[in-house]
């Protein structure tokens, strides 16, 4: 069986899949295990399948094992020597402070990085809007914007994976960082972003066990994996803020510079209602027959 298996590359993937599923018989499985030990390509395929199918465990009902099982496992552990570094998670925030706290403090749902985002957003707006967007936030549009911003941070809360880790670890370092002005943020964030989806920094998780200096290494790793989480949130928060700013900008332009709005973006009925005169009403109605009925 393994003979034809190695012939076609596709079959190797299938063999890996069947190995993970567990459908191979004893002989085939033994052969696959040899491949697993020797053939890095096959090993990688097995890992991929384990990862793919691994989530199916969510649908398996838990069953409590016998109570003495833990004692038997514990008896087989090497020796309780490496205990002296009992570094529970509560200790981490403190021990992080001596470290150069890198990007962590800047996060904390701060919106100071939004100016940068704003700039990138402008190309998306109709060109007529671009010059007017800057002054608006000072005007009435600022209020709705600020009201909504906290909302966007609330929106980010529900997803479980990050929230639990974030608050406790972040609270201490962010306070001293708060007065720090925005200018620093863009520098640090720009390089951080590209790594948003890539698992590149993750291998840091892999660490040699018995190293004495493990404490700092561990902290470093945790900081890195935390930062990976943060990048995702930062991107999300940035997108939400962008959407808000765009909306606020549009509303403000409607209000203060209606003539600069391209015809497609004008809520004619609304503007009339608000007492804003619409000069170019006539050409506007032609492309929008349904609205014209309501206007007259």
């Amino acid at each position: 069986m393994p003979d034809d298996v190695t012939a076609e590359p596709d079959d190797k993937g299938v063999l890996a899949g069947e190995y993970v599923l567990g459908t191979l018989d004893a002989d085939e499985r033994a052969a696959a295990q040899n491949l697993f030990a020797e053939d890095a390509d096959f090993t990688a395929k097995v890992k991929v399948w384990e990862r793919r199918l691994g989530e199916l465990h969510l649908m398996v009902e838990p069953i409590e094992p016998e109570p003495d099982l833990w004692a038997r496992i514990k008896a087989r552990l090497p020796e309780p020597a490496p205990a002296p570094e009992p570094e529970p998670q509560q200790a981490e925030p403190e021990s992080q402070q001596p470290e150069p706290a890198i990007t962590l403090p800047e996060f904390k749902f701060d919106f100071e990085f939004t100016p940068k985002e704003e700039r990138t957003a402008e190309p998306e707006l109709p060109s007529a809007l671009a010059p007017t967007t800057a002054p608006e936030p000072a005007a009435g549009a600022a209020a709705p914007g600020e009201e909504h911003v906290p909302a966007s941070s609330e929106v980010t809360e529900p997803s479980p994976a990050d929230v639990i880790a974030l608050p406790s670890l972040e609270a201490p370092p962010s306070e001293p960082a708060a007065p720090k002005p925005a200018p620093e943020a863009p520098d640090l964030e720009a390089p951080a972003k590209p790594s948003a989806g890539t698992p590149a920094p993750l291998p840091s998780f892999i660490a040699p066990k018995p190293r004495p200096a493990a404490a700092t290494v561990e902290i470093e790793q945790k900081v890195r994996s935390l930062r990976r989480h943060l990048v995702g949130w930062r991107v999300f928060a940035g997108i939400m803020v962008l959407a808000l700013l765009t909306l606020a900008g549009l509303v403000a332009v409607w209000r203060y510079a209606p003539e600069r709005v391209p015809p497609e973006l004008r809520p004619v009925a609304l503007m009339r209602l608000a007492g804003i005169s619409v000069d170019t009403g006539a050409p506007l109605r032609k492309p929008l027959p349904p609205e014209s009925q309501f206007d007259e």
Binding site: P82, A207, A214
Partner: peptide
């Protein structure tokens, strides 16, 4: 992660 550091 803690287990990988030998934390029983």
């Amino acid at each position: 992660a803690a287990v990988s550091q030998g934390d029983q």
